[in-house]
Computed example of a mutant assay.
Amino acid sequence: MILRLVLGALFTAMAAGQLVSFDAMPGILDAYHLTSGAGSTALAVLLIAGEAIAGVWFLARPRTTSRTPAWIFTGVSAVWAALAVQAYARELTVDNCGCFGRYASQPLRWWVLAEDALMLLYAWLLLRGSGNSRGLAPREHPIPARITTATHGKQEAN
């Protein structure tokens, strides 16, 4: 539950920072040299929406066992990690990683990759601790301890 609250606050802050600096987000994403123009704008919309949905969901329902917000968190974290890893491997100069839009900017360095690795670890922990897709807690025992069946008119306990 605490992990969901912390990650919910982090993702909500990321989405807010990116949303209020939305005009700069396509340019920030262009620096990764994977998208440009309309592609960067679409990617910015998807990242902000994913961060906002997962963040608010974790804050509003921190005890949820639904896999949906965990998968959204995983997807957004994987996109950011892929952007960072490929840019770092290609030795691109990225002055602002874009995690918070224009705010709390930091250049792409090795510690950004470490932060992304932590986010993917947290995603794995969230998925591991999630229940089924309807948000129900996983059953502790798949078969009830006592089952009674009718056999030839008699009741037997299994």
Rank of each mutant, 00 (worst) to 15 (best):
M1E: 10
L3E: 13
L5K: 11
V6I: 15
V6F: 09
L10A: 08
F11G: 00
A15Y: 00
A15F: 05
A16N: 05
Q18T: 02
L19P: 00
V20I: 14
A24C: 05
M25K: 06
M25V: 09
I28A: 04
L29Q: 02
Y32T: 08
L34R: 13
L43P: 00
A44L: 01
A44F: 03
I48R: 03
A49G: 06
E51C: 11
A52R: 07
A52E: 06
A54G: 06
V56Y: 10
W57R: 09
W57E: 07
A60I: 10
R61T: 10
P62Y: 04
T64F: 04
T64S: 13
T64L: 04
T65K: 12
S66D: 11
P69V: 06
P69N: 09
P69H: 09
W71D: 01
I72Y: 00
F73H: 12
T74F: 12
G75N: 09
S77A: 15
S77H: 06
W80Q: 06
A81P: 05
A82R: 01
L83T: 05
L83H: 01
V85M: 03
A87K: 01
Y88A: 14
A89T: 13
D95N: 15
D95W: 10
N96R: 05
N96L: 08
N96P: 03
C99E: 01
G101M: 08
S105W: 03
V112Y: 05
V112H: 09
D116F: 00
L118M: 10
M119W: 08
L121T: 09
L121I: 15
L127F: 00
R128I: 00
R128W: 06
G129L: 00
S130G: 10
S130F: 01
N132K: 04
N132E: 15
S133G: 10
S133T: 15
R134Y: 09
G135D: 04
P138W: 07
E140V: 14
P142F: 13
I143H: 13
P144C: 04
R146S: 15
T149S: 10
A150D: 11
T151E: 14
H152W: 06
G153L: 03
K154F: 09
K154M: 11
K154H: 07
E156A: 12
A157N: 15
A157I: 12
